[in-house]
């Protein structure tokens, strides 16, 4: 029976794993939410009372941090596949820390904006930024929690599991929130 199953497994190699597929569909759904918001932004931009903002430097730093976290995520996936579990766990931790740092930096950026007079009053670039970047932060935090869960799983070695699928799903998601932020940031900078 086991042999038969293994044959099945190798026979199925080329097909995409359902969990990965589910993730992709889920990402499409997330994209639609941000597409909805950025379209609203584009429509509102032509309204007469549109107010733009000056981006504090912090957002550039956070962008760099986000990019770096994508890199460490990719490296941890590579180490997992090479079964170097110690390195994998270390990189996973770094990714989670960078993710958290990103969130902190975003909030510092928000704080600076707020101090410079951009509050919730109105519906210009700043208000959209609070909401859109805020929602993005929620997605990053979701990723951080998932990373923590994977981290704990990597330690509770009840059964040795070298199934790369969960790690691949995780890294795809992480790259997604990274690219999503890049898109949003560029969008805000160019569509002021």
């Amino acid at each position: 029976m086991n042999i038969a199953m293994n044959e099945q497994v190798s026979g199925q190699k080329k097909r995409i794993h359902p969990h990965k597929f589910t993730l992709w569909v889920g990402l499409a759904s997330v994209i639609m939410m941000f597409a909805g918001l950025t379209s609203a932004y584009i429509v509102k931009r032509s309204a007469p009372s549109w107010i733009t903002i000056e981006f504090p430097k912090t957002f550039w730093y956070s962008t760099v941090v986000m990019l770096a976290s994508s890199l460490t995520m990719q490296m941890s996936l590579r180490d997992f596949k090479q079964r170097d579990m110690a390195k994998y766990r270390r990189l996973l931790t770094i990714t989670a820390l960078l993710g958290s740092l990103f969130v902190v930096l975003q909030f510092i950026g928000f704080g600076k904006l707020w101090k410079s007079g951009t509050t919730f009053e109105g519906s210009g670039e700043g208000q959209f930024l609070y909401i859109i970047a805020g929602l993005h932060i929620l997605h990053v935090l979701g990723g951080v929690i998932a990373l923590l869960i994977m981290f704990i799983k990597a330690f509770s070695a009840k059964k040795k599991n070298y199934d790369a699928v969960p790690v691949e799903v995780m890294s795809t998601y992480w790259h997604f929130v990274d690219i999503l932020w890049l898109y949003l940031f560029v969008f805000f900078l160019t569509m002021a």
Binding site: M1, N161, V165
Partner: peptide, 22 residues
């Protein structure tokens, strides 16, 4: 059958498949 193989594929080799065949 094939679905399980995909879903639980890599566990199969490490521990007895708890749902064999049935």
């Amino acid at each position: 059958m094939s679905n399980e193989a995909i879903l639980h594929g890599s566990e199969v080799s490490t521990h007895e498949a708890h749902h064999d065949g049935h």
